[in-house]
């Protein structure tokens, strides 16, 4: 088994203007997702949603404090899931059903040090 981080990149502006109905659908999609991970032969180890990049503070070279995300992009990192899966195909199957209606996801293998 290996661990994969599923990074969710979405257009924040869409969330800012979304109706309560849409936000409710997104919440429901994440709840449904969590319930279905094991059917794909994987296990959900964790996951969080992040506050928008407007709340981010970056430090460059360890000292210079700047307001905002480390990299400015239209679709910004807005949350993640950490999953355990036997191989990339299983991780991609989980990634495929990860809710990200205003963007997409990136799958990164996690290094395990033992």
């Amino acid at each position: 088994m290996a661990q994969y981080m599923i990074l969710i990149y979405e257009d924040e502006a869409q969330y800012a203007t979304a109706t309560p109905e849409v936000l409710g659908e997104v919440m429901q999609a994440h709840t449904d997702f969590a319930a279905q991970v094991e059917e794909r032969g994987a296990k959900l180890l964790g996951g969080e949603a992040l506050q928008p990049t407007g709340t981010a503070t970056s430090l460059r070279g360890g000292s210079e404090v700047t307001d905002g995300p480390f990299v400015e992009t239209k679709e910004a990192l807005g949350g993640y899931y950490l999953v355990e899966a036997p191989d990339l195909d299983a991780a991609l199957a989980v990634a495929r059903m990860t809710p990200a209606r205003f963007g997409g996801v990136e799958v990164r293998p996690v290094i395990t040090f033992d």
């Binding site: 290996a2 036997p86 191989d87 990339l88 195909d89 799958v107 293998p109």
Partner: peptide, 10 residues
């Protein structure tokens, strides 16, 4: 190797 792309028939 690192991403564990499986060695199998899909």
């Amino acid at each position: 190797a690192a991403a564990r792309i499986p060695y199998r028939v899909p």
